[in-house]
Design a protein around this nucleic acid. Structure first.
Ligand code: MN
Ligand code: MN
Ligand code: ZN
Ligand code: ZN
Lengths: 136, 136
DNA sequence: CTACTAGTGCAACCCGATTGCAAAGATTAT
DNA sequence: ATAATCTTTGCAATCGGGTTGCACTAGTAG
């Protein structure tokens, strides 16, 4: 697992206090985080600074965003080597019981046969249901 | 193609003026519509009435909603026989150029192999790119 | 040290979604 | 037919996530 500093260096994003603490927080949790989640977890860091940090991270492919239908955009750290290309696509799983969203890096995404002349650029694939913890 | 009245009767939703006009509007277009889209198209119908109509339709499986990442929830009429079960899942295509969102009823959704003990209930699968019209 | 650039905090704002409430309409009971 | 009851509708107000303007601070280059 890479450290915050290594990731920021690789992705050519200048290291600052806010960026370090936000990225460290994202790395410390296995589930995707909303702006509100991060704000709550980092009470001394301003919301708009976190917001702009997330935008910067997303532009530079440090993180990717997920629209899981909860009404809040969630963010998760990209896998090592990710370029946010179609090849880096993966499912996201939203647990309707515990409200957690994870990246399913291990579930292969099959080839999508689009209608003629459609061009794939990106995708937001959210699978919803019960996670292993909640499905008992 | 079923008429508004037939659909509402089958889905056991009482027919009212607002419901008829909203459903007719959704049926008349091939692309998914946002609340704002519908509001603009039906200037004499109140936004909150349209909103509540959409909620009623969704609860009764007359329509389904799509989170396409545009910031506005879109709505599309369910296919005949749809029960909004996992078997009725289909991709949605969001054109990043013309901003239209369609249901890809004809593209099969492959089986998704979730990790052990995860249970699939629903999904929101949005593929983004260029539609045939815009990909020239 | 000085000039310039990038990052931060705070407050205000935007806008889609949602709700409270009273009037209008439809349904059921008397 | 009339009254009581339930549902739907319109309007205005509110909520909440996201976003932005602006002044201040920190960092960098000359
Ligand atoms: Mn992910
Ligand atoms: Mn659809
Ligand atoms: Zn769960
Ligand atoms: Zn298009």
């Amino acid at each position: 697992m890479q450290t915050e500093e290594e990731i920021l260096k690789i992705k050519k994003v200048k290291n600052t206090a806010v960026r370090t603490v936000v990225l460290r927080h994202l790395l410390s949790l296995e589930k995707a985080q909303s702006l509100k989640d991060i704000e709550n977890a980092l009470p001394y860091t301003d919301r708009s600074s976190i917001f702009r940090t997330l935008k910067t991270f997303e532009e530079n492919k440090v993180i990717h965003s997920i629209e899981d239908g909860s009404g809040m955009t969630k963010y998760a750290v990209c896998a090592e080597g990710c370029n946010c290309d179609p090849k880096d696509l993966h499912y996201h799983f939203y647990c309707t019981n515990c409200d957690r969203t994870f990246c399913l890096f291990d579930v292969p995404i099959p080839n999508i046969e689009l209608p003629a002349n459609f061009k794939l650029q990106q995708a937001n694939m959210v699978v919803k249901g019960l996670c292993d913890n909640c499905n008992r």
